[in-house]
Amino acid sequence: MAANIRAKRPFRFSTASYITRIDNERAMNLGQLREGLARCSDASVFYHTFQSLGRHHFLTEGFSNDFAQWVLAAVNLPGLAEQLGGLDIRNYVDLSTLRSDALRIIDEFCLAHPDDERSPAFEPFYFLSSVEVLVPLGVEAWTLDEFRYWLERASHTSFHFHFLVSRLRLHLQSNDFSVWFKEELGLERLARLTERIDICTDTLEGGQARLVALIERELAA
């Protein structure tokens, strides 16, 4: 019975706030986007992919990351935008692979469409990054029931931090929640189902509600 299991270590909820730093790099065409993407910081890649999803989580269609949106709106290349938008951040355990894949997509496109590489954009792409300020919320869960209680009361930012941002910190194809379910409660199935929650096509609120529903099913089993 999942409800009776008590963890050895509690789950501690945190929230994070971010300040957006303006880096001195901008792109005025696709070629410059490629160059900027090749040399920008990991923090910038993170900002324009993982954090972009968090910032625009209420848009459930046609928006995936800043690169794809800019390619669509500013250089009007919907095919390339779709390819970049197809990068599923949940498949990545490090930023260098995500960066390489984005670069490969742009390179292949430029090879096939050399005229588009230097076509001027309607508006520039600005490379940004963010500074994280992490604050523990001072609440902890020892059981799945307690976890559900606090999860229902967690902010979007807190959910985003533990569910998405944690993936990079952990260098795992997982998230804080799944790790705790598996390692502390021994609930491997719940951990696996949690990993499958698709935040790319749902809002953060929807993802959070889905996780609550999974936990309720586990508690009722």
Binding site: T15, V133, V135, L137, G138, R153, S155, S158
Partner: peptide
């Protein structure tokens, strides 16, 4: 906003 977002603000401001 939901109460959670306000709780987050209070947690940040505590420091």
């Amino acid at each position: 906003l939901r109460a959670q977002e306000i709780d987050d603000l209070r947690a940040l401001a505590k420091r």
